[in-house]
Design a protein around this nucleic acid. Structure first.
Length: 581
RNA sequence: GCGCCCGUAGCUCAGUCGGAUAGAGCAUCGGAUUCCUAAUCCGGGGGCCACAGGUUCGAAUCCUGUCGGGCGCACCA
């Protein structure tokens, strides 16, 4: 549908057709791969409106030199009424100058597609499960979780926009030892709420105040009947209650960032359903799991290490440096053992899996990918599965490293941060660098300089457009698509910038890099601010021109469509497109 | 010791599956506001793309090595 109407998609198709024709004429060999052919704006605008590297990429296969092949392509291109000129430049680039009708048409497309401009059918409705956040349910969300949360959420939106059918999923680790620790910590708070003196929170339990309300609620609900009971009596109850309270807290924290998951999958439920055992059985039958003894870890001396026989997954067969246990010596599942079953569960309802993890889990990527590949292929339904790592955020407070461990009870929470600078600043900050680079995040500095955050620059451009529209309406001027021939070069240049949005969305989705959208929006906002300011030096270049209603109508139409693109882009990032600043 | 990620302007960072003269913001210096929102715009200075080799028409981008920083190297999660 829509994607073929946009400029870059249209020209890519056009070039592709020409190459197909050249194949038919035997200029190019049959079936030669054209995936490297690109159609993009030239870096230097004086080179033209579009450039393609087709001749350079294909020259070798055509057994000719790039410029000769370029001439053949140009011959066909110039017959297109939308192409004003096609020139061969440098090593064999083909630079195209386009007729203004191309830009006028693109502007109409933005208006016609509205909120849908930038969406594409690239994903062909494939079902993608994106798992992100999945923080342990042992406390409120802190800034260490923030990056993965925002990047995962923006990626999910991006994939949706690119035509995938996306499920946003959160894996609740409610079965490991850490939730027992949580239950014990909650038990202390329960006693405290009943008036017992609990003294200092012992080492190894969660000391944070956030458990006090949980303890109070438990005291209210259960009375004092568990105070003197042995642990096995109260642990499951306290665990379930505390986890549920923590998940409510986490959902509330995520909501502050504008994040909502479709599915919360429970590890405990997964185990109860016997999924890990099923996986183990299958893997044993296929010699992927065996009982064995691990070697002493290298590079590290463990005093209490002793050899034990455990069920091991043959991850060394897949490039891991050690086989990995799926069960512990107490018979419980390891995280890995449950996790591979969990991925199989996700695969039941998806065509593709993506996990967003913090870089501190990088070491476990190989084994889980290997396990999922082996299981899914072995069971006859191979599934593409990728783990995207977001690098660590180094948290600073006035240049000093800030603690973020839950155990310390002293950490910067997401709620604090959003409260301090707002959702939009937090989200945009996390999205203005590529995910695989580390970043420093200084709480004090971000609070101080939040007014300089680039998010305001983009929002200002949008607000400015809104304000201009309001002002125009007050003066009796209205945008109109019927006066587009009144636009000059300044206007056309702005359209060409806006026209890149659809290909940016596709490229960002393909690379799983939402940050590209943030940078694109910054550039588009910059182009608009420049355009707007032309009117400061030269009154004839203002958007609102009461004396020339037709010119004004065209410029207002343009401005409102730039606003549309900004809105669409900000929506992808989950940032508000404000109408006033 | 091993594995993964990073190294681009004084600082924070972009840089398209290898492409044309490497770009922004901050900081700095100089300009623009009786005029549609100056939270903006225009301009100057500032680079051995960590270093050394290699691949090719072409490398910040790919490969190898060195140096520097981060994260891992449990039956934890």
């Amino acid at each position: 549908m829509s994607e073929n109407n946009t400029l870059y998609a249209g020209f890519s198709a056009k070039i592709d057709a020409i190459l197909a024709a050249l194949e038919a004429e035997a200029v190019l060999p049959a079936d030669c791969p054209r995936t490297n052919v690109s159609v993009e704006p030239p870096r230097d605008p004086s080179h033209g409106d579009l450039a393609t590297n087709a001749a350079m990429v294909l020259a070798k296969q055509a057994k000719t030199n790039p410029r000769a092949l370029a001439e053949k392509i140009v011959e066909k291109l110039v017959s297109d009424p939308h192409v004003v000129s096609a020139e061969i430049a440098g090593p064999g680039f083909i630079n195209l100058k386009l007729d203004r009708s191309v830009w006028e048409n693109e502007l109409s497309q933005i208006a016609a597609q509205g909120d849908a401009y930038g969406k594409s059918a690239m994903g062909q409705g494939r079902r993608v499960n994106v798992e992100y956040v999945s923080a342990n349910p042992t406390g409120p969300m802190h800034m260490g979780h923030c990056r993965g949360a925002v990047v995962g959420d923006a990626l999910a939106s991006l994939l949706e926009s690119a035509g995938y059918d996306v499920v946003r999923e959160y894996y609740v680790n409610d079965a490991g030892g850490q939730v027992d620790v949580l239950a014990r910590s909650a038990f202390l708070r329960y006693k405290e709420a009943l008036g017992h003196d609990i003294g200092e929170i012992p080492e190894g339990l969660y000391p944070g105040d956030y458990l006090k309300p949980v303890g109070e609620a438990l005291a209210k609900e259960l009375g004092d009947r568990f105070v003197e009971e042995p642990e096995e009596e109260w642990l499951p109850i306290f665990r379930a209650q505390a986890v549920s309270a923590m998940m409510d807290q986490i959902r509330a924290d995520l909501a502050l960032l504008g994040i909502r998951h479709d599915v919360f999958a429970s590890e405990a439920a997964l185990q109860l359903a016997g999924k890990p055992a099923e996986a183990e059985q299958w893997m044993r039958a296929h010699d992927l799991v065996y009982d064995g003894v691990l070697e002493q870890p290298k590079g590290k001396v463990l005093d209490d290490w002793e050899p034990v026989e455990l069920p091991l997954f043959r991850s060394t067969k897949f490039g891991d440096d050690q086989d990995r246990p799926i069960k512990k010596s107490d018979g419980k599942w390891t995280y890995f053992g449950a996790d591979l079953a969990y991925h199989m569960q996700k695969a039941e309802g998806a065509d593709e899996l993506i996990d967003i993890w913090g870089a501190d889990h990088a070491g476990t990527v190989k084994r889980i990918k290997a396990a999922v590949a082996a299981l899914s292929e072995g069971q006859g339904k191979p599934i593409p599965f990728d783990v995207k790592l977001v690098q660590m955020v180094q948290l600073l407070r006035n240049g000093e490293p800030a603690k973020m461990s839950k155990r310390s009870g002293n950490f910067v929470t997401i709620a604090d941060m959003v409260d301090e600078v707002g959702k939009d600043v937090v989200r945009f900050s996390m999205l203005t660098r590529k995910p695989d680079a580390q970043m420093d995040f200084d709480f004090a500095k971000v609070v101080e300089t939040s007014k300089e955050n680039p998010v305001f620059y983009v929002q200002y451009a949008h607000a400015r457009i809104c304000s201009t529209m309001r002002k125009a309406a007050a003066e009796g001027l209205a945008p109109s698509p019927d006066q587009m021939d009144r636009m000059g070069d300044d206007e056309l240049a702005l359209i060409s910038q806006a026209a890149q949005f659809p290909r940016e969305v596709e490229a960002a989705a393909k690379a799983c890099e939402p940050h590209r959208i943030a940078f694109y929006l910054y550039d588009l906002a910059s182009a608009f601010h420049s355009y707007y300011n032309l009117g400061n030096d030269d009154a004839a270049k203002r958007i609102i021109l009461a004396q020339q209603p037709e010119v004004s109508a065209a410029r207002l139409f343009l401005a409102s469509q730039i606003g549309q693109v900004l809105r669409n882009g900000l929506a992808l990032l989950g940032v508000e497109a404000v109408e006033e600043l």
